[in-house]
Design a binder for these strands. Structure first.
Lengths: 145, 145
DNA sequence: CACCTAAATGATAATTATTTTCAATTACAA
DNA sequence: TTGTAATTGAAAATAATTATCATTTAGGTG
């Protein structure tokens, strides 16, 4: 599981951000969703809780959450626009279905060896990495006949 | 080194695409560039060779090249728009500077073990993966004081 | 070489995602 | 309760990409 909305709210508060009902509503949606949502998805899901919220407000909150590393983004899947996602505990990666776009998270990756080598060879000070596997999920394999 | 423009042209021809001077010019730029270029970058670089080329034409060619896996894309680096790049021999990955955006390619990665495990656990039929390291390049480390 | 046709081009407009601007509203500290 | 700076949302501005379509052209054919 990821962060609760209470946790997210407290982080915002700690950094001097105001806790508006709009933000509460968005965080509620984000923290209770198992899927990876676009800003537009979030907009729709917030309607019942806070009709009339501005899409802009969502963009702004997502920007703040990104700064604090509370959400992360899906990068692969060229054609579809960039996705914003609710986050798992910490550092994790994605396994993405190239057909239907389903995303599965996984956490284990051991790239420290490779990271160290790259660092030595290139002089880079490595901060993080992004790892995504792309493939066909079970149900799309079946459909493929 | 990547593909020569002759090689690229022959691939297009083999698939029934016409070899227009515009395409020749774009391929020349792509095959001789060491950097990762946006469509707009390419547009500019093609000017001397073929002034008046349409940006659309570039988009269209990039789309074709993508289909044949002759170029690949940079995904990380959130803020900057998606980058199109000239490709190294085959499967490879990127090391991206989070400050200046410089991209270094590297080829070695051993993720077959992880891939197999994921496949077993999730039922996915894994096709490929995307691996990007993000960090500070040497010169940006210095600037950071 | 001249001709024919489907493919390709480029100007323009249309889409779509995201950001900016700004006046009105509101959270919350005092 | 009040003051104020942060926040909101409508609307416009940017920006990237795609679609439309009349015109041009590459390249095969006779």
């Amino acid at each position: 599981m990821g962060f609760t909305d209470k946790k997210l709210l407290s982080v915002l508060k700690k950094h001097g951000y105001k806790l508006t009902p709009q933000r509460r509503a968005v965080l509620k949606v984000l923290s209770s969703s198992q899927e990876h949502l676009t800003p537009a998805d979030i907009f729709e899901k917030v309607q019942p809780e806070y009709p009339g919220i501005g899409l802009v407000t969502i963009y702004r909150l997502l920007q703040i959450l990104t700064e604090f590393g509370l959400i992360c983004e899906i990068h692969a899947n060229d054609n579809s626009r960039r996705y914003l996602i609710r986050r798992q505990p910490e550092h994790h990666h994605h396994l993405i279905c190239s057909s239907c776009g389903t995303v599965v998270d996984f956490t284990d990756c051991d790239l420290s060896g490779l990271g160290k080598r790259l660092s030595r060879e290139t002089g880079f000070e490595i901060e993080t990495h992004l790892l995504e596997f792309v493939g066909l999920c079970r149900s799309c394999q079946k459909e493929a006949t």
